[in-house]
Structure formats: C-alpha cells, structure tokens
Design a protein around this nucleic acid. Structure first.
Length: 179
DNA sequence: TCGAAGATTCTA
DNA sequence: AGAATCTTCGAA
C-alpha cells in the first residue's frame, strides 16, 4: 500500500503550488492496548493516545524526543486501542519536494525512518486524527498487486514487549530503517 | 507541580 | 558513543 500527501505548498520549504508526494509502505510496526507493554495505550486512555481509541483508519501523530513526529494508522474499532506505526517508505513521487524538506541527505535516506518520513512528507500534529481512508491531505492508497516477502522481527527502540515479532518489512528493500 | 523518559536522528 | 530537545505522563 502507499501513503499519499497532497499539500498546497504555502511557503513550505519554498514549495509553491500544488504538490503531491507518494511513497510505498515498506516497514511498519504494530501496537496494541493493555496487553502490549510497548504501546502508548498500555496504561489506558490519555490525551496523547486518544486517537488510538478512536475510529480505525485515522492518523495518530505524536511528537517525541523533542524533535520528531511519528505517523501511525489506527486499526481497531472505537474503544479498542490499536495502531500501526509507519517506519519507512520507498519514495515514488515528489522527490524534489522531499529533498527540499530533508536537504543534504541521499535519496536512500529520505524516508527510511519514522521521524525522517514525517519530515520529508511535511507531516505534523495538524494532521492528527485525519481520516486516511479518504482522499485528502494525507491518505492511504491501494497499490495494486505486488509480490514480495515480508520479514517479521522485534520492534525497534522499545524496552518492554520485545518478545513480540511485530515489526514487518519488505524483504530486501533498500529503504528499510535498519537491516 | 515536577522529574523522568521517550515507538529518534544527527554528529563526533 | 552521546547530545539535542520538549511534550507527555505519572507520581508526589
């Protein structure tokens, strides 16, 4: 599947006019509720994790380490927390805009991490809770038939919950955050 | 109200 | 290997 970003480029890194960015989802991680100690929802509902308890198919964007936004897509029915963290994309369209937003970085490193791809796609908390199942500023697209192997590993950057193999990536893809 | 940690990234 | 950087959370 793909992530699409449509923006009107109002002096955003000097991008003018209508701009569209597209990336293929090549790495994700799953997060759940009170049964998942690595999840933001582990200790119940808070202001930050509210979207995780909301409608499925919506964006959950959070800010971390004082610098970075991370993009999740919610997965479960209302009242049941769950989300998928988008960890890496393969850039497909709008490469020039991404290069503007992440200067001095090779194309391979444009979107190969959760904080990097939000920077390259100009995603911040203003897009929190947006419906990603419908065309709009940020949405998910079916990518048509593809053939690839999926690798499952431990999730990255967590303390607890390492026993779960809930990180998934496209085998051999060059845009993975780490091998 | 305050202290600590964090689903990270960049630089040395 | 270590700093940067600030929001969110939970305990006091």
């Amino acid at each position: 599947m793909h992530v699409a970003r449509d923006l009107l480029g109002k002096r955003l890194a000097r991008i003018k006019g209508r701009m569209r960015m597209l990336g293929r989802i090549v790495e994700v991680e799953a997060y759940r509720g009170i049964d998942d100690p690595a999840s933001h929802a582990f200790r119940g509902l808070t202001i930050r994790n509210q979207p995780m308890f909301g409608q499925p198919g919506h964006a959950y964007v959070y800010f971390t380490y004082g610098n970075h936004y991370c993009l999740n897509v919610t997965t479960e029915q209302v009242g049941i927390p769950g989300a998928v963290l988008i960890r890496a994309l393969e850039p497909l369209e709008g490469l020039n805009a991404m290069r503007r937003l992440r200067p001095k970085v090779s194309d391979l490193k444009l979107t190969n991490g959760p904080g990097k791809l939000t920077k390259a796609f100009a995603i911040d908390k203003s897009l929190n809770e947006i419906d990603m199942t419908k065309q709009g500023p940020l949405y998910i697209l079916e990518s048509g038939p593809e053939s690839f192997e999926i690798v499952a590993t431990q999730r990255v950057g967590i303390r607890d919950g390492k026993d779960r193999m809930w990180r998934f990536y496209v085998s051999g893809n060059a845009y993975i955050s780490r091998p």
